[in-house]
Design a protein around this nucleic acid. Structure first.
Length: 177
DNA sequence: GACAGATGAAGGA
DNA sequence: TCCTTCATCTGTC
């Protein structure tokens, strides 16, 4: 029953102690993850223990992926490696970006790499700035650990979701700058 | 085609 | 140590 359009996207909130994340799913898998916008206090933070998943409106695989996503998110925020990942939908992304993101996913919890090291890992040691661009285009922060990518010499670099998030995520993984 | 960018290295103050 | 300049590559307009 794909009532609406060819690529209907399902958006489901995830209530965490840090705030409400938002997951987006396509028919192929997890397509996006948003940080809580804690700049605005008008959004009620869902601190109910239960996650509100509209089970009647979401297909079975998406419900399963969502469970996996929540578990993975909790793991990373607790500072350890997730047991499992949902399938990720990178439709519409370039080959280069997917290479960069795959390389980032191989950084273990608690370790960091520099933009230059990612560039080397994908065989393009000089494409360091392009790697930065791909990081910024990362639709699934936290699960694709762009926060573990620092500039050279341990400098913090940048972060799309705000540098505070980057520092917080690194702190939770036991990384000190 | 031109330009900007979540870089990196080098050189000068 | 900090700032500026420059090399280099990809994405976007």
């Amino acid at each position: 029953m794909k009532a609406n359009g060819a690529h209907s996207m399902v958006t489901i909130p995830i209530a965490m102690p840090l705030g409400q994340f938002t997951a987006r799913y396509s028919e192929k898998g997890l397509a996006g993850l948003d940080f809580p916008n804690n700049g605005r206090a008008d959004l009620p933070v869902g601190l109910d223990a239960r996650q509100r998943v509209p089970t009647d409106a979401v297909s079975t695989p998406i419900r399963r992926w969502h469970r996996t996503t929540i578990a993975a998110l909790k793991s990373v925020l607790a500072g350890h490696e997730p047991d499992d990942f949902p399938p990720l939908d990178w439709t519409g992304k370039t080959e280069f970006q997917q290479k960069v993101w795959r390389a980032m996913r191989e950084i273990p919890v608690g370790k960091t790499k520099s933009y230059g090291e990612i560039a080397q890992a994908i065989g393009k040691p000089k494409a360091v700035r392009a790697v930065g661009g791909a990081c910024g285009a990362n639709p699934i922060p936290v699960l694709i650990p762009c926060h573990r990518v620092l500039a050279a010499h341990g400098k913090i670099g940048g972060f799309g979701g705000g540098l505070d998030w980057k520092r917080e995520l690194l702190r939770r993984e036991g990384i000190r700058l």
